[in-house]
Simulated scan of single mutants.
Amino acid sequence: MSVDEILGQPAPVGATVYRRGDVVCVGMPLPDLRQWEVHVAAAPHARGREAVAAMRSMLTEFWDSHPDVDELIAVPRAENRAVRVTNNLIGFALSEKVKVLWPDGIERETCIYRMPRP
């Protein structure tokens, strides 16, 4: 599977992509370059404990290769329970829930997860 197929959409242009089999971690710098937005995903056949271990490994690699970054942020829809659980399992902590206007023009309740540099 391609990275885009695993994510379910095209990876943003210029994103940093880590991959372990059919598990991916995609990061993009935010305007404050000490913060990056991160998305992790696993193909349906690759989900489970091994996927969580791969995600943790990729995040460790990210921290090692980006010493200037202080915080990672993940912003899933509040209704996406599977992503929210995964974020907790890989080390993110829920910071807040806010209403956000998504690119499709719909305002949705969105969770802000944060992970400070370990």
Score class of each variant (00 low, 15 high):
37 E>T: 14
7 L>V: 08
28 M>S: 15
97 K>S: 15
75 V>K: 14
106 I>R: 09
25 C>R: 08
34 R>F: 04
96 E>L: 07
19 R>P: 13
17 V>S: 05
36 W>V: 05
26 V>P: 04
102 W>R: 15
96 E>T: 15
68 D>S: 12
69 V>Y: 02
6 I>D: 00
14 G>D: 05
75 V>H: 08
29 P>K: 03
75 V>C: 13
15 A>D: 11
1 M>D: 01
117 R>I: 04
31 P>W: 09
30 L>T: 07
108 R>T: 02
19 R>K: 12
24 V>C: 03
118 P>G: 06
94 L>R: 10
51 A>I: 00
95 S>W: 12
22 D>L: 07
98 V>W: 13
7 L>E: 02
106 I>F: 05
64 D>H: 14
33 L>T: 14
67 P>N: 06
19 R>F: 04
116 P>Q: 13
69 V>H: 03
68 D>G: 11
57 S>K: 07
64 D>Q: 15
98 V>G: 04
8 G>R: 03
17 V>M: 05
118 P>I: 02
110 T>D: 07
48 G>A: 02
106 I>Y: 05
28 M>H: 05
6 I>N: 00
78 A>D: 12
81 R>S: 11
28 M>T: 15
69 V>F: 01
47 R>M: 10
27 G>S: 14
3 V>I: 10
104 D>R: 09
20 R>G: 01
113 Y>T: 05
2 S>M: 02
96 E>W: 10
54 A>G: 03
18 Y>H: 11
85 V>W: 12
18 Y>C: 03
101 L>I: 13
41 A>G: 13
107 E>C: 11
62 F>H: 09
90 I>D: 00
49 R>D: 10
5 E>Q: 13
37 E>Q: 13
82 A>L: 12
12 P>Q: 05
36 W>A: 08
67 P>I: 01
55 M>R: 00
73 I>D: 01
84 R>Y: 04
91 G>E: 05
92 F>R: 08
104 D>M: 09
27 G>K: 06
58 M>W: 08
95 S>D: 15
3 V>E: 06
35 Q>S: 12
4 D>H: 05
2 S>K: 06
96 E>P: 02
5 E>V: 01
43 A>Y: 09
65 S>T: 15
73 I>W: 10
88 N>G: 14
41 A>N: 07
24 V>K: 07
64 D>G: 13
35 Q>W: 09
52 V>I: 12
92 F>A: 09
116 P>F: 07
38 V>W: 06
103 P>L: 14
111 C>P: 04
62 F>N: 04
36 W>C: 05
78 A>N: 10
9 Q>P: 00
35 Q>T: 10
67 P>D: 06
111 C>G: 02
55 M>H: 02
112 I>C: 00
38 V>K: 01
31 P>M: 12
79 E>N: 09
12 P>W: 08
32 D>K: 08
19 R>A: 10
91 G>P: 10
78 A>E: 13
68 D>V: 04
15 A>Q: 00
36 W>K: 08
52 V>K: 00
1 M>K: 00
85 V>C: 08
23 V>S: 02
109 E>V: 12
48 G>Y: 06
